[in-house]
């Protein structure tokens, strides 16, 4: 995974709460067996509307999505993260994220920064008054700067560390392999197995 410390890019105000992962990527796009190539699927239903924010310049070139609360609820589909990344987004700002979506983002190097809703509102105003305004997100200091607005954000420490270091989760876990083996040796016999087929 690539290291992330700071990112600067055009902010996109998405004035909607409860943006579930079915909206981020509808189910019909989940049939591919690759991890890339989902950019056309991002917000596919909404993008059919010419007024949708990503159909407007300069927002179409945005890399920092500024969303309403409860972004990424619903389905566990990691395709939602792949679609955001394939489109070009590197950061999502929201007052609250769906748990699974936030976890998936952390594995894929999409930074999910949790801001107070009041700060989100201030940033929305800046972006709407001056489209194309860039947002700088600094993971080291956990701050977001958008023109006159400077706001702190929250992210769990473990994810932050992994993003800053660009660490692979599986590799980290495999450092504990001897403990996993020891744990397995003590599992009770009554726990079920799927194989052999009974």
């Amino acid at each position: 995974m690539e290291k992330i410390s700071t990112h600067t890019g055009i902010g996109v105000p998405l004035r909607a709460s409860n943006v579930d992962t079915d909206q981020i990527i509808p189910a019909v796009y989940l049939k591919r067996i690759t991890r890339t190539g989902f950019e056309d699927a991002l917000f596919a239903a909404w993008r059919r509307n010419p007024d949708f924010i990503l159909n407007q310049k300069p927002f179409d070139a945005g890399t920092v999505l500024v969303a309403g609360p409860d972004f990424g609820t619903g389905s566990s589909r990691e395709h939602a993260v792949w679609a955001l990344k394939d489109y070009g987004f590197r950061v999502v700002l929201s007052a609250r994220f769906g748990d699974i979506f936030r976890g998936n983002s952390g594995k894929q190097g999409l930074l999910t920064a949790q801001l107070a809703q009041d700060d989100i509102e201030l940033i929305w105003k800046v972006l709407e008054n001056a489209p194309g305004t860039e947002i700088t997100v600094d993971l080291a200091s956990k701050t977001v700067v958008c023109d006159s607005v400077t706001a702190p954000f929250e992210i769990d420490d473990y994810t932050r560390w992994r993003l800053l270091e660009g660490l692979d989760d599986i590799g980290l876990t495999l450092r504990h392999e001897s403990e996993i083996t020891a744990f397995e040796a003590q599992r009770p016999d009554f726990k079920p197995r799927t194989l052999p087929v009974r």
């Binding site: 991890r35 566990s76 589909r77 990691e78 395709h79 993260v81 699974i100 976890g103 998936n104 594995k107 894929q108 989760d169 599986i170 876990t173």
Partner: peptide, 10 residues
Amino acid sequence: FGIGTSEVEH
């Protein structure tokens, strides 16, 4: 609980 594909691989 539900997990994403990276966690499935994990």
